[in-house]
Amino acid sequence: MKRITIITGHYGSGKTEFSINYALDLMQQGKKTALVDLDIANVYFRSRERQAFLEEAGIEVHSNIYHSDISADLPAIAPSIRKVLENHTYHTVIDAGGNETGAMILNQFARHFLEEEHDMLYVVNANRPETRTLEGAMYHYHRICDESGLRISGLINNTHMLRETEAADVLKGYQLCHEISEKEGIPLIYSCCTEEILIKLKETDAMPVDFNPYRIRLYMRPSWLDR
């Protein structure tokens, strides 16, 4: 993967969980890592809520000029973001907001997103009402490309049903991503699964060859929400 990874998708597709997981992985591989939270659409469940945790893990977090100090829907993007886009020693993960509304903001950083330096990934959850079908998923895919002015270079299958996720869910998402992949000629980079689902898929020999499993942990969801 290239130095800058932009994470986009329909809102509620799981961009933030993936971004945090991915940034932590980069860090573990010994890379100097930064996470840029560009979410200006959401007011809850933003990656900067986990700023302290991420910083403790050694990840630089750049977001709003108000950081997480105040909880507001103010599109006040921190100027420090430029540092981790320009400085070639950083591996930077950009957690964009949902839909084309969230992707629009990428436009102003266009000159930093050189072809050889960045990947833009499209996160798909086939259990979300608006991205259940190829038609729905492609609608948001194109809207995000149009508004950001960038090309999507890979897919992340993040199909889940929270704690009720079954192997069949992830496989359904794999199938959908496969169709997008064929249509657009871009690869499926990862299929996200929890440890339990990964074990199930291995045990039942149900994992497709190009499934590219990626073990995901939930960092954003408080345990009591699943009571």
Partner: peptide
């Protein structure tokens, strides 16, 4: 069928 929805949408 079961879907994953955000509260406000639902």
């Amino acid at each position: 069928e079961k879907q994953l929805m955000k509260g406000n949408e639902a």
